[in-house]
Amino acid sequence: MSGLTIIMIVLVKLLLPAPIKNTELRNEFWLRKTFASNNHDLIVGGDSRIYRGVSISAINESLTSKLVGVNLGYSSAGYDLDYLNFLVSKLKPTGNRILVLGVSPHSFTLEGAKNELYHEHLSKGNFDLFKGLYLSPYLKHFAPYKATELKDFLLNGKSDEGYFEDFQKDGWVHSHRLPEDSLTAIGIYQKLFTDYQVSDTLITNFLNRVDDIEKSGIEIVAFRPPTFDMMTSVEDSLSGYSELYMRTEMEIRGCTWIDLNPAEFHTYDGSHLHYKSAEHLSQIIGKQIQLLLDQNQ
């Protein structure tokens, strides 16, 4: 019986492509982020546009010497003090210390400031941590398939629909979705910004903390994550967010602001960047960091 089972397992692993969704990988990915060490040169923070949009490896491609970094973006993350302090705590105490912040309107809403995913992972019990950090690397080989995936595989040889995610060790999720639909996220954000506008208190607290961080010798690089044109219009018209104000205030405090041309980027759902655009964005960030490092030398 065990021989037959092992043969079947080997056949499944050899014949079938990896399943589209892998909960164990996802679990390990979030826990590794949340419980990352505090010896990094480079930390990237923000919401899902950031953890799907910024790759540390791609940033390093633009640098003359590589930085040790991790992307600590979380779904719907908001810039409350707790989250900002968490980001800073993962930087090493001396040497190059760079904090890259994706500044989207949603990060300044009270909804974002709940930081639900971040807190969910932070409050995991010891066994969940043990499972996520030490067992998931083995369990991920047994990720289940959906019946639809098997049907597609049997009929077409591969699955051509779904949300394809590849969880990277640097905290980036290499993502794309088939079929693409740029309007998927628009309705959600319209409703969201009708219920929640950006909070002045959150912005003030954020800017005060940014001031302190800059004064402590940490370089902050910030930008508005590029997205679909229509999404930018929805955000500008409904959220109460002013990019110009944010940029000016951050630059006054010594931050570096990156200007991005939205036309250079492509989203698969109207909000998140296709992995190729994510790599492109990361390279632009990398070039800006290189300039900063050169200036500091």
């Binding site: 019986m1 037959l4 089972t5 079947m8 397992i9 499944v12 909960t23 289940p144 398939y145």
Partner: peptide
């Protein structure tokens, strides 16, 4: 039975729901 138990184990590993 042997085949069915093996198939059940394979299904548990690769076809389980959430």
């Amino acid at each position: 039975d042997i085949v069915l138990v093996s198939m059940a184990i394979i299904a548990i590993l690769f076809l389980r729901g959430e």
